[in-house]
Design a protein around this nucleic acid. Structure first.
Lengths: 338, 338
DNA sequence: GTGAAAGCGCTAACAC
DNA sequence: GTGTTAGCGCTTTCAC
């Protein structure tokens, strides 16, 4: 491979192969059949391209075609089991389609989110998956204006189709299981607790709603509002809430539903020190999955979000070409009940 | 904002602002001072651009300048605590520099890796961080040919500077701590075990080497090779290895070092069922961090990779412009000893 | 202080 | 079957 400083273009290849630029382009980007190029010519072009170490400049190509061959997904953060499994599934489906899947996180910063999406659009990404955006509709508006296919993931929007986890279903099923397991003692008032999540978070709202309705269905009553601690997605908040509950009740609540593994970390710090007998008659659940929770000394039922299912559904919708519908598709999470 | 179908270009803006394309470009991309543009003109341009909903086409811009405003990092997988924290740190540093940080995983598939990097390069990424590539040098060669700044992360290469975790240091410190804690009983032969990792993996090799040397330093002897189970990065392998060790010894080894949280999952399944007294006189460590391991009923010392430190160092090197050095920079992990 | 014009490397009519 | 040519939207001399 000749190592000239300047990168080879189709013109260089054309010259070396004694062909024209358009012929070279056709050979090199596989529009083979359209122009019925002679095998011998193709051969020569390929050889020349190889010898020159030719790589196509996709910015030039994209400028011409208004495409890029890349598809993008934005997520709030990388460093999270659920979002990173969305990323992983995204990559799987992109590879199947021979597209390059780039993912960028926006730290739940609305301005960063907006800027990032604009950047992505201005690079002509062929598709944008919007996961857990702070303002899905604003993002969707940008995509629509730029005429690029897009879909909401995890958090629904009203300006584009959305594929989300069925948080209500999952939390309801989990809560019903816990109430069932805890038995009649759980029917006494103030014996069902909910910890974690953010009041402003759609997913939290859905899970809490499910918890409350499951409580009504199972006990005939709404849970005591003092037992509901929607105090955030962090371990400390979880620990504090758990301590308050233990103090108030003098024992574990009969039913405990923790809204995330993050909050569960804090809860776990409290529970860890309890004697095993303290868990008798109580049922504990966590919305979200962590393998370490499967094998603690006390049983924890979990809801495992189906990241792969969500992304699969998203691509399915895209394939069907549901450009401007705005429906919400729910994907049921998996239950890991014990 | 006028909503014509065709996207506005600088020419549209120029026309509306009664200015020329070059003036518009200068105003819009901040090369303000270079051309000393009249405030009034700038005003008009900005207004027109806003009214037309102008967004710059970065493919066109990039085609002209051979840059893109995006920087990329490739990682083996998203769905992993360590790699996803690298991604997160990467994003942090990119944002500081007003660059758009895209991350792409390549599933440890050499062909995919190669293709991905070529794609990224052909889009003129301004920088490429190569994390845990199967063939760092091949990737680096592509970057060098394309004249794009690049750096190895996590796994060293010989064709570009590398910033990696100091696995030897971390594992040695951890092992020494465990031997110290286990006391003289650990000096008996066959009382120190190592589980997890891959023989072909550089990082595993380093950790194992540290384990062996720490054993020599602490006990005067190499560990019994039957106690070394480098059987992979998955829970099942960890569980199997742990069972074999328990069977052979009839009890916990005095020193147990597990090579990853993934393997620890399996190990944990065995240890979970043991009575608390079984842990007396044994010291357990895990190379890698998981918050749930901090609060188990038995103590687990951990090594926590300093993802942020690694990425910080990488950007530092880049800022210094160490284009063609090929040295290896080690970043010490954090010790979480109990 | 501002404008005209020549590309960046590729694609897609359209000609031959 | 292959070549010519006119842009895609931007940056950047260079001229005025």
């Amino acid at each position: 491979m000749l190592q000239n400083k300047r990168k080879a273009t189709i013109y260089d290849v054309a010259e070396r192969a004694a062909a024209s630029a358009s012929t070279v382009a056709a050979v090199l980007n596989g529009s083979w059949e359209k122009r019925r190029i002679a095998a011998a010519t193709a051969e020569r072009v390929l050889k020349a391209a190889h010898e020159l170490g030719y790589r196509m400049n996709r910015q030039a190509s994209g400028l011409r075609t208004s495409r890029s061959g890349m598809i993008a997904m934005i997520i709030p953060l990388h460093d999270n089991r659920y979002f990173s499994s969305l990323s992983q599934s995204f990559e799987l489906f992109a590879r199947e389609r021979k597209l390059c899947p780039v993912v960028v996180s926006t730290l739940r910063d609305p301005a960063e989110e907006q800027r990032t999406v604009e950047t992505l659009i201005s690079h002509n990404m062929d598709l944008l998956l919007i996961a857990g955006a702070t303002d899905p509709d604003a993002v969707a508006a940008l995509c629509t204006a730029a005429d690029i296919p897009h879909l909401n993931i995890d958090l629904p929007g009203s300006a584009a189709p959305s594929v989300i986890s069925d948080n209500y279903w999952g939390a309801h099923a989990l809560a019903m299981h816990l109430f069932g397991k805890a038995g009649s003692a759980a029917k006494e008032p103030g014996q069902a607790a909910f910890i974690g999540g953010l009041p402003s978070d759609f997913n939290t709202q859905e899970r809490l709603r499910a918890f409350i309705e499951a409580s009504q269905a199972a006990t005939g009553d709404e849970p005591d509002s003092a037992m509901i601690h929607v105090t955030g997605y962090d371990p400390e908040a979880g620990e504090t809430a758990m301590r308050m509950i233990l103090k108030r009740l003098g024992r574990l609540p009969r039913v405990l539903l923790v809204n995330s593994t993050i909050a569960f970390e804090g809860v776990f710090r409290c529970l860890q020190s309890l004697p095993l007998s303290a868990f008798d008659g109580s049922a504990i659940g966590c919305y979200d999955f962590d393998p370490f929770l499967e094998h603690l000394q006390f049983p924890v039922s979990m809801v495992r979000q189906d990241a792969q299912g969500i992304v699969a559904k998203a691509f399915e919708l895209l394939d069907e070409g549901v450009g401007d519908s705005t429906g919400i598709t729910m994907v049921k999470p998996k239950l890991v009940l014990v």
